[in-house]
Design a binder for these strands. Structure first.
Lengths: 149, 149
DNA sequence: ATAAATGCAAAGCCTTTGCATAGGA
DNA sequence: TCCTATGCAAAGGCTTTGCATTTAT
């Protein structure tokens, strides 16, 4: 945890940004909720618990900054809000998501499932892939078990 | 074209919706711009050319309705607006997209590239896939050719 | 006749921006 | 000191909603 913050701090400094207390508090919230897919508002409310004086605009600006640095990925599941997802350290690609249409749960797939597909896209469509977004919508295992009929 | 409209009409009627002139004009615009990824505003402006009295709210309501009927798919490329994409008739799955980060062009891939991946997701994660969203971000062939250095 | 659909304007959300103040390097 | 970052409030942009009117069946 501290190590990751230290590395993010260096990353910021290398581009002459500062790791202010507000930014650090925001990063900590993201680290503590790595499994979640928080909206800016969600992050704001959580950061406020530690740093009550923080403003929503600062959270937006911080998330935007972390996005540029590729510390987080901004993603949209179609519900009208952007969500922010911490990128695995050293991950070459953004991970995938499983959105349950029953209960709304969002699970993550860290495994790279698109290697072959990207190769096809690059060769067949001559498209140089830099990033991707893959989300499956369906019924999660928990909901499936709860109604086996 | 007329056949497709006829079929959409039936689909609407089967759920006691009407194919009003405004809805028909909207569907025609979508059919005529099948390759594009129009925002609600884009559709509105194009429909207005044929049916100047139409209101933006009606366009939104129509697109929402067509979304429910799975005639169109609503998609978001991260630029803050929803885009509406006509689903291929009889397509089992939503097609994929290539978004160029240089020129902004959005190309479509109709081929199903996710068959194997979905099988893995269903078996390994016990997730019953109903739909998906796959978008690649990168450099399109046109931009790539224009600067081969 | 009855219920659905439309157009307009207003309201709602989420997000960004302007600006004066505070804070690091 | 100088420039960045912050907080607040206002503004923006996209989308939805309320309501009276029009339109189909």
């Amino acid at each position: 945890m501290e190590k990751r913050i230290e590395r993010i701090k260096k990353q910021l400094h290398s581009q002459s940004y500062k790791l202010t207390p507000q930014r650090e508090a925001t990063v900590r919230v993201l680290l503590e909720h790595e499994e979640d897919h928080l909206s800016a508002e969600d992050v704001y409310l959580l950061v406020k618990e530690k740093a009550p004086e923080i403003g929503l605009a600062t959270v937006y600006r911080t998330l935007e900054l972390l996005s540029e640095l590729k510390v987080v990925d901004k993603i949209n599941f179609g519900d009208g809000v952007s969500r922010y997802d911490l990128r695995q350290e050293g991950a070459a690609h953004f991970h995938h998501h499983l959105v349950c249409i029953e209960c709304g749960a969002v699970d993550e797939i860290q495994e790279d499932l698109l290697g072959d597909v990207e190769k096809i896209v690059e060769e067949h469509w001559k498209f140089q892939v830099k990033d991707h977004r893959l989300t499956f919508h369906g019924i999660c295992s928990r909901c499936h078990e709860n109604k086996p009929e």
